[in-house]
């Protein structure tokens, strides 16, 4: 602020030199002091506002960590203990040892969630990137029709296709194996939404890669496939990583398909256990264990998100997410 004022004052103007000439050294010092005080007051106001916003943002996060670290092992918090004395990780070890009355270990739950996350991520990116390339670079009949078909699917929330997916996947059986009632079945349901999103998101990024690079490759004798693999794919790495990560999050945090489709406890996922803790087992689940469990579920996703947020939010701005 102060530097700017000086700049304005130094602008050549017919009044300014006379005004400066008339002011005594004392009044200049007073003006400086007043300006300094005004700067401090303004900074204090800005800091107060920022700190207030920061407190509202941090409150639920500090709260849930505080409940998880409370050493007293009580079923419900008896007050607002944001920073509990003598924090302990007991709740975390209990959340890992026996997260639900089902006797399914945390590792089994996490492994099932991981399978969903990896399958959704890999399939949607691997199949999506070639289709995105075709939409971005090639001219063909039905191009706009197919693109609209992909967009129309994106507009629908995932919940809106759950009834037909349930019935159709339920019909695919080999002996006792029912595709609906299995991790691969849930993964297929997730991919049905993640793949159109991946196509749309990757197309948006491929559109920003200059065509000149492929032209240069063509002149050097590359075929279309070689240009795609050796020129486009390496350049699209950031977008591929972001799309893969968003697919991973979709699988890791999926709730409605797993909750709807899976019957066998050994197939259950982390989010299902989490929901059971606030749903059917709410009365018997201590909140410190629940909080520790919630932190453990969100930690892998949140940490990656936090470190790569600049790229991820950029990717989001191009594509938009299917809710």
């Amino acid at each position: 602020m102060s530097t700017d004022d000086r700049e304005v004052a130094m602008e050549p103007s017919p009044i300014a030199p006379a005004a400066i000439a008339r002011t005594s050294p004392q009044s200049i010092a007073m003006m400086r002091r007043r300006r300094l005080l005004r700067g401090i007051g303004r900074q204090a106001l800005l800091q107060a506002l920022c700190i207030f916003v920061a407190i509202t943002v941090l409150f639920p996060i500090v709260y849930v960590i505080g409940v998880a670290l409370d050493p007293r092992n009580i079923a419900r918090p008896d007050g607002l203990n944001l920073i509990p004395p003598n924090p302990s990780f007991d709740a975390f070890s209990r959340a890992i040892a026996k997260p639900s009355p089902n006797n399914i270990s945390f590792l089994t739950l996490a492994f099932n969630s991981l399978k969903l996350a990896v399958a959704t991520s890999l399939v949607s990116v691997a199949f999506g990137v070639s289709a995105a390339y075709a939409f971005s670079r090639l001219k063909f009949k039905l191009r706009s029709f197919l693109m609209i078909a992909v967009l129309a699917v994106l507009m629908l929330p995932a919940v809106a296709t759950i009834a037909p997916l349930f019935v159709l996947l339920n019909g695919i059986r080999v002996g006792d194996f029912v595709l609906r009632n299995s991790i691969p079945g849930v993964a297929l349901a997730l991919i049905s939404g993640a793949l159109p999103f991946a196509i749309w998101n990757l197309k948006g990024y491929l559109d920003t890669i200059p065509k000149d690079l492929e032209e240069a490759a063509a002149i050097d004798g590359c075929t279309r496939n070689q240009a795609f693999i050796h020129v486009i794919l390496p350049l699209a790495m950031p977008a591929l990583a972001v799309t893969a990560f968003l697919g991973f999050v979709a699988g890791w945090t999926d709730f409605y398909f797993s909750w709807m489709f899976l019957d066998h406890p050994q197939d259950f996922t982390l989010t299902m256990a989490l929901y059971a803790m606030v749903g059917q087992y709410a009365s018997t689940t201590p909140w410190n264990v629940l909080s520790a469990f919630a932190i453990l579920v969100s930690l892998p996703v949140s940490v990656v998100y936090l470190f790569f947020q600049r790229w991820i939010i950029g990717g989001l701005a191009i594509g938009g997410v299917k809710g």
Binding site: V57, L58, I61, V249, W252, T253, F255, T271, L274, Y275, A294, V297, S298, V301, S302, Y305, L306, Q309, I313
Partner: peptide, 9 residues
């Protein structure tokens, strides 16, 4: 921070 936490959590 709120952006990076999964909505179910």
């Amino acid at each position: 921070l709120p952006v990076v936490i999964p909505p179910i959590i």
